[in-house]
Simulated assay, not measured.
Amino acid sequence: MIKIGHIGLGRMGLFHAENISQMNDAELFALCDLDEEKLAKEAKRLNVKKTYTDFDEMIKDDEIDAITITSPSHLHTEQISKALKAGKHVFSEKPLGTTVEQCKLAEKAVEENPDQVFMLGFMRRFDKSYQYAKKAIEAGKIGKVYMVRSYSQDPTAKIEGAIAFGPHSGGEFLDMCVHDIDLMRWFIGSEPKKVWAIGGCYAYPEFADWNDGDNVSALMKFENDAMGFLFAGRTAPHGYNVETEIMGTEGIIRIGSVPQKNLVEILDSTGIRKEISQDFIERFSDSFKDEMKEFISCVKEGRKPEITVYDGTAVSEIAYKCKESFESGELVEL
C-alpha cells in the first residue's frame, strides 16, 4: 500500500481525498489543513490515521510515501520542493505555480530529486474521449492537424467562488485556460510562437481589479504553423461547458460539441432538452480518478508519468503571455 499524505480540504482537495480513500493500492494516511474543525471531521469520515495543521511536520513523517497537493495555487511550488527534498513522491494540482519563476524552482526541485515521482494534474488527458482523439491523431486518421479550438465555460452559479479566488488565482488564463493550452500542445505536438488575447469584464467588473476578465479568448500561432483558439468564460447560464474541436487536413474531431451529462433526453411541457454537468468535478469525475491511479502506479512501478514538470512550466509561460497580450492589447511573441 502506498501511504499518502494529502494537503488541502477545499472542494477540489476533498474530491481528491475521497478518491484516494477508495483506492485498493493506496491508503489516505494523513490529512493536512489549517481548519482544525474540518480536519478532524474529514479525518473521521474518511478513516484517516493522522492529521496535521503544519505541512512541514507532515512531510517529516517517515511512514508517508507520497504527498498530494491541493493547496492554494501560490503555495504549490514551495510545497512540491519541500516534499521532494523530504524523499516523498509528489502529485500536485494545477497550476504548477502562479509565476514562471515559481515554475522554474519546481523544475529545479524535480531535477535534484530524480528518484522521486512528480506528476501534475492535467486531468483532461485522462478523459476517455480525449485519449481516443489523441490515438486517432497519432494514427493519422484526420491527416495533419492545423487547428485546435477549445472552449471552457464555468456556470454563472459558481461566480461568487471565482470572485473570491480572483486575487490569488493568477488570472483567468492561468486559472482556467491551462487545460486548454495543455490540450493544444498535446494534440498539435508543437509550441506556440505568437499569441494575441482579448476579452473583458462583461458582467462582473470586480475582475478588472486584478487586470482580469470574466470572459477572455486567445488566438495562437504554433511553431509548426498550426493554429490554436481558446475561449474561457465564467458566465455560462446553462452550466459547465467544455468543448474541443481538432481540425486536420483529412478530417475533424469534435469532443463535447453539445455539452450533456448523459444520453438522456427529457420531453415535457417546455419541449425536448438534455441536461448538462454543472461543474468540472461532475464532467471529469472519472478523469480525476484515473490520473490519481496513474500517479499511484508510477510510484509502485518506479516509472515517470507522461505529464512532466516541464509541461507545467510551458503552459504557465504561455498563459502569462496570453495575460500580457490581454493587458496590452498587442500581439506577443514567445
Rank of each mutant, 00 (worst) to 15 (best):
K3S: 08
K3P: 03
L9E: 03
F15Y: 14
A17S: 14
E18V: 05
I20F: 00
S21G: 03
Q22Y: 10
Q22V: 00
F29L: 01
D33I: 06
L39C: 07
A40M: 06
A40I: 14
K41P: 05
A43L: 04
N47L: 09
T51W: 03
Y52S: 04
T53M: 01
M58E: 02
I59S: 03
I59Y: 07
I59V: 11
I64R: 02
T68V: 06
S71P: 01
S73Y: 13
S73T: 04
H76K: 02
E78H: 11
Q79A: 01
I80T: 01
K85M: 10
K88F: 09
H89T: 00
V90K: 00
F91Q: 04
F91Y: 15
T98R: 08
T99E: 10
V100R: 00
E101C: 07
K104M: 15
E107T: 09
K108W: 12
E111A: 14
E111I: 13
N113P: 04
N113E: 07
D115P: 00
V117E: 02
M119P: 14
G121F: 09
G121A: 07
R125W: 12
D127G: 07
K128I: 14
A133G: 07
A136F: 14
A136S: 15
E138Y: 11
A139F: 08
G143K: 08
Y146E: 12
M147H: 12
M147V: 04
R149T: 13
S150V: 05
Y151N: 13
T156I: 12
T156Q: 04
G161V: 10
A162S: 11
A162T: 00
I163L: 11
F165M: 12
G166L: 12
H168F: 15
S169W: 08
E172A: 13
C177A: 15
H179K: 08
H179L: 12
P192M: 09
K193E: 15
K194R: 15
V195I: 15
A197L: 09
G199W: 05
Y204V: 14
Y204M: 09
A208F: 12
D212K: 00
D214P: 06
A218Y: 13
L219Y: 08
F222M: 09
E223W: 06
N224G: 04
F231Q: 11
A232E: 05
P237W: 00
P237C: 01
V242T: 08
E243V: 01
T244D: 06
T244G: 03
I255F: 04
G256T: 02
V258L: 11
Q260P: 00
K261G: 02
L263I: 03
D268M: 13
S269K: 15
G271T: 06
I272M: 14
R273P: 06
Q278T: 03
Q278S: 05
R283H: 06
F284R: 10
F284A: 03
F284Q: 03
F288L: 08
K293R: 13
V299F: 07
R303W: 11
R303H: 14
E306V: 12
I307T: 15
T313A: 01
I318V: 11
K321M: 07
K321E: 05
K321V: 08
C322S: 02
F326K: 06
F326D: 05
